[in-house]
Amino acid sequence: MELVLTFLLLAFLGATALGVAKTRNLFSAVVLAGIFSFLSAGLFTVMDAVDVAFTEAAVGAGVSTVFYLATLALVGGKVRAPEIRITTVKEKQTARTPRFPLVVVVVTGAILIYGTLDMPPYGEPNNPIHRHVTPRYLEETDEEIGVPNVVTAVLASYRGYDTLGETTVVFTAAVGVMMLLSRLKKRDELGEEPWGEEPVESLDVGFGALEPSLESGDRLAEGEGRAEELAT
């Protein structure tokens, strides 16, 4: 049963990933990426990682989809046809679908598969990973920490330093987004631009704003116009 579920989920994951690679509509790519996250959450559940599945379902399928949609509302939702290649601003060339990335990917994949041949078998209780610190965590948590969920105990107590660092990274990411997306409005008397934001009327992020997405031709023309402006 578990095996069947794993195979099914892996097949769906592969199909969704190929779908993301294939589609030229960014909106459907975002939805497919959300499905990919959700399927991987299912796979985590099958693999007994309930906490991870929980996080992946909430983060990957929920919040990150919203972030992607908010971005698409700002940048438009179409991908340019892959046959056209821009080398200079004035010209566009038609190029064949590039083979080189495919070769790189196949070679890398083959090397990685060769590497897995030395890995311990899947799911064996005697694998090296299960013999290092894990037995101590599993045996001592009940006495030392008194918390039934071992994942929480390791996360917050045994490996509290890690989690403090990760929390700081998350906070730093928010600082980065604030610096990138805050609007620079006024210059002070020294001519420097202070960081700031201003109150906003309302929000129509996503669905409505996505519809008038630019056609690829328009986008090219727009890009050229912009570049000519820059050149003059």
């Binding site: 972030f67 929390t167 998350v170 928010a174 604030m178 805050s182 609007r183 201003e198 129509d204």
Partner: peptide, 26 residues
């Protein structure tokens, strides 16, 4: 500690959302 994590993660996700949404109105 988990309370601290929750407060930070909530704050970060909401902040990112606010900034993306505010950009859209510009």
């Amino acid at each position: 500690v988990e309370l601290g994590v929750m407060v930070t993660v909530f704050g970060v996700m909401a902040t990112v959302f606010y900034f993306f949404a505010a950009r859209g109105r510009e």
